[in-house]
Design a protein around this nucleic acid. Structure first.
Length: 288
DNA sequence: CTGCAGGCCGGCG
DNA sequence: CGCCGGCCTGCA
């Protein structure tokens, strides 16, 4: 681990609150100075912004520049996508205005799989708590600015953990899912590596074979991990709600199938459906 | 005390 | 296939 810093010029689609509070990640927290600190695969990172620059500093065992480029999806032209989506209708235009600083993070695949298995039928504060306890108990300690942080445990570090131990950390009925998926991944060394070069729908099929991974969790993994499948449109209760309210308008929301929602999303948003989902979700959820 | 939160799983028709 | 009940846990 090595202390590193990086400053880059401010870009338009980059607001800390939008990025870290739009619901895609669980390990970033706001500091008193308005910056955010997060634990990532290769260490601890802190990010701050002003009108001119974005400031990164961290204790990392990887190159900060290369990591930031990838993690924050800096190669993608969000302005172009926002302009395109804004023209679809005034709903998209408004939701984009609201979440103008959102970027889709490229998070570690293994961590994203386990985190979203934990997210099933759960709420965000509890999800974050479980992940913290899991990391503190089994992950590697990293110090940064006189504080201790814990990396997300590797598959190897979870190899011998029992369902009872998971239960004691508050996993509830997800204990067996975590146990089984960890076992599956530990028994197939290249299972995750092989996903990167596969076609999206084939990756989805593979993810669905994992214990605790259903359609919604699979889609979140595809979009929010470094698999970076940008056209995937995860449907949770909020997305269902906003899509029905705006476009489908079925008086009985429960009767709308995910298939219908997906088709509407694909027809309207095409390859940018994933980002469109984030704008709509963030907008609908925070404004309730 | 019930309801519910970013679903999944298994059994059934 | 699609539908439905049950499910750990913590907080309102």
């Amino acid at each position: 681990m090595k202390y590193q810093e990086l400053v880059i010029k401010k870009i338009n689609a980059f607001e800390l609150k939008d990025i870290f509070d739009c619901g895609q990640c669980f390990r970033w927290n706001e500091e008193l100075d308005g910056s955010y600190t997060g634990v990532v695969k290769c260490g601890v990172l802190n990010v701050n912004c002003d009108s001119k620059n974005i400031y990164f500093k961290g204790n990392l065992d990887c190159d900060i520049k290369a990591f930031v480029d990838k993690y924050f999806d800096l190669d993608r032209d969000y302005e172009a996508i926002k302009n395109k989506l804004s023209k679809i209708d005034e709903y998209m235009e408004n939701s984009i205005k609201y979440g103008k600083g959102i970027r889709i993070l490229n998070q570690d695949l293994w961590e994203t799989i386990i985190s979203y298995i934990i997210s099933a039928n759960n709420n965000i504060p509890r999800i974050k708590g479980i992940i913290e306890r899991l990391s503190k108990k089994y992950g590697t300690k990293v110090s940064f600015e006189n504080e201790d942080y814990y990396l997300f445990p590797t598959p190897e570090q979870l190899k011998d953990v029992t369902t009872a131990e998971y239960r004691s950390l508050g996993l509830g009925f997800r204990d067996i899912r975590l146990y089984e998926t960890t076992e599956t991944i530990n028994n197939n060394n290249h299972l995750l590596d092989n996903l990167y070069d596969m076609k999206t729908l084939d990756v989805r099929d593979e993810l669905l074979k994992l214990s605790g991974v259903g359609p919604k969790v699979a889609d979140c993994i595809l979009l929010f991990s470094d698999l970076k499948r940008f056209d995937i449109f995860p449907i949770d209760v909020w997305v269902r709600r906003v899509m029905n309210d705006l476009y489908i308008k079925n008086p009985d929301e429960k009767k709308v199938s995910n298939k219908v929602i997906n088709k509407v999303a694909f027809d309207k948003f095409g390859d940018d459906a994933g980002l469109a989902q984030q704008y709509l979700f963030y907008w609908r959820r925070t404004l309730n």
